[in-house]
Design a protein around this nucleic acid. Structure first.
Lengths: 347, 347
DNA sequence: TTGAAAGCGCTAACAA
DNA sequence: TTGTTAGCGCTTTCAA
């Protein structure tokens, strides 16, 4: 590829001239070559190569009204944003799928509660064809924004807000949190545990609620003193475990809503000399890389394919965009991805 | 803002008509309103508001040749990509600075060694005005790519490759790794430690080399048995510490090239019953959130403003772009950001 | 199968 | 200070 002095790239016009064809034909070739005879295709391709032609994206977008870009909106206000491996793996999956479809990823970090205006303006500005968003909190203003901007959006995680009746359902991708929790708790029961406690996540996140619901599905009429609330962080898990131990020294198992909290809980148990799994069995959730396998003892936990969820989100969105363009195919539906119990040493 | 049925947004033309002015005047107002009389400005603004006008980005880019977007290229092949709080904090800083200048962040994740072609094509395709990249490895192909694509780029971290003579220096932002290391080691010496070991990072990363150089600056002619090599991970730090202890049971301090490895080292020392800081003093590097403060004992370490580095990268790039446009101002220079020693309990 | 020509929405010379 | 007009580079009817 010849080096380009900036600002003087060859245009389609130049390619056409060099190939001895019209601009229209050159365009056809560049866009797949349908309906152009082989010799001309070759000529144009050669010209493209020799000139180092790269289509001007803005010009193309101007006429096609497609930007070839998708926004990923991350509205998690806390520090966790990227450090959370959960996000990083989803983004990885998203990136892979988008790349495979020649689509760019525009990252929109929401930097504060007053920042939604900017996001709304951007989304409405024709910069992107669609959006992927993570809606973790029940009071998230994002769904309203994307809806008003009229921009197709797929959510990661079941949105917590309740749709207005008559509104079209919002497509999302989520793990089978409830089912996974059920399997985990049932496993503890099958182990013969009788006083199974739960450390849950923040109640404004649907994943936390769903996991709690799964716990309750198995343990009908559970004693409220067996349920503690954490914040999905190591420290909060430790605190919750300590509280639980104080209230219910007789507990013999804990289903913890994520691995981070489970590792905090394990630390507390170790400090107090409670043996795991002999005295207390522990099951986590997420099968988080670099955590679940390295706790002491290694964590039995519910595994989900996070990167796969990211891919799925992107695929759903792209399919929806295609549908908008071609006007056929079914509206994108939500997808619940399966979970599996991974047995290690903690239960 | 009125809801838009997709694909039928009002154009500048419509705004102009409604305001009773020419398209040119409307354009002027939308772009700041310089040289337009107040009453007309108001009229146009009102029309913009009533119509819910949002400029078409592609059309604007087509004529101005500015995209208002910047690529962030992350070519770290390992899983660390986002989970590494280092990146996440830099990206945060970058995002903040870009947002403040109405510039979008396009995320380019390099997904494998064969993926650089795609990146090169994208960078050459006029999608973005500039790029920010993290060049951690000495054999990184990225610098060559951005140079050939003729796209202004600022690096995070001192690039490891040696520039061809006559090449213009590549602007980068980096912490004062060498100076920080010197301060750390000097501190250990002032504490009276006499056999100060070092656990270094991967030798193909400039930050690791610079920290090692700083260590050597203070401890001229250091015994090679006192230097071990890690990979910036907790586990590698633990292994390096174990090796060091075996070779040199007499060591009385370790300067570790990052906090993650330091936490691994601390674990090994604890397991072996070596008291910190009494028998062995430890100093880390990074002052990493959620790590340095929570080790046992809390880590004395060299702190750097990572988010600030991200902001700086963005600022440097934007300034360079401005310069390209206006043709004046000095060429962007590299920036070395200061480090400070944070005293906690480990030394 | 190919080419001519219209126009996507905007900015920026240039004229008035 | 305002308006007229010529494109930016591309895709896409419509005719040939």
């Amino acid at each position: 590829m010849p080096e380009q002095s900036p600002g003087s790239r060859p245009t389609l016009e130049a390619v056409a001239a060099r190939a001895g064809v019209s601009r229209a034909t050159a365009s056809r070739v560049v866009n797949g070559g349908d309906g152009v005879r082989k010799p001309l295709v070759d000529k144009v391709l050669r010209a493209v190569d020799e000139l180092g032609y790269i289509p001007n994206h803005a010009a193309r977008t101007l006429v096609t009204r497609r930007t070839g870009a998708v926004a990923v909106v991350i509205a998690e206000p806390e520090i966790r944003i990227f450090s959370d491996p959960f996000f990083s793996q989803q983004i990885r999956g998203i990136s892979k799928e988008l790349t495979a479809h020649d689509t760019q990823l525009v990252l929109l970090l929401v930097e504060g509660p007053g920042d939604f205006d900017r996001i709304a303006r951007y989304l409405s500005g024709g910069h992107v064809d669609g959006a992927l968003a993570f809606s973790l909190h029940t009071d998230d203003p994002l769904p309203a924004i994307t809806r008003r901007a009229g921009i197709p959006t797929v959510y990661g995680g079941r949105p917590g807000w309740t749709a207005d009746p008559g509104d079209q359902a919002v497509p999302y991708v989520d793990a089978d949190n409830r089912g996974g929790a059920r399997v985990a708790v049932q496993y503890l029961r099958d182990l013969g545990r009788e006083r199974i406690a739960h450390i849950g996540g923040p109640p404004d996140q649907t994943s936390a609620m769903d996991r709690l619901d799964g716990y309750r599905d198995v343990l009908l009429d559970v004693d409220p003193t067996l349920v503690a609330e954490g914040a999905f962080t190591v420290e909060s898990g430790a605190r919750a475990m300590a509280g639980l131990l104080e209230r219910r020294p007789d507990l013999d198992a804990v289903f913890v809503a994520n691995d981070l909290m489970a590792s905090g809980a394990l630390r507390v148990l170790r400090e107090r000399g409670v043996s795991v799994p002999e005295q207390v069995a522990i099951v986590g959730f997420d099968d988080m890389d670099g955590v679940a396998e390295e706790t002491d003892p290694p964590l039995t936990t519910v595994s989900q394919d996070i990167e796969g969820q990211g891919r799925l989100m992107a695929r759903l969105l792209l399919r929806g965009l295609d549908r908008d363009r071609t006007g056929n195919g079914p509206a994108p539906d939500s997808v619940i991805t399966p979970t599996t119990l991974v047995r290690r040493a903690s239960a």
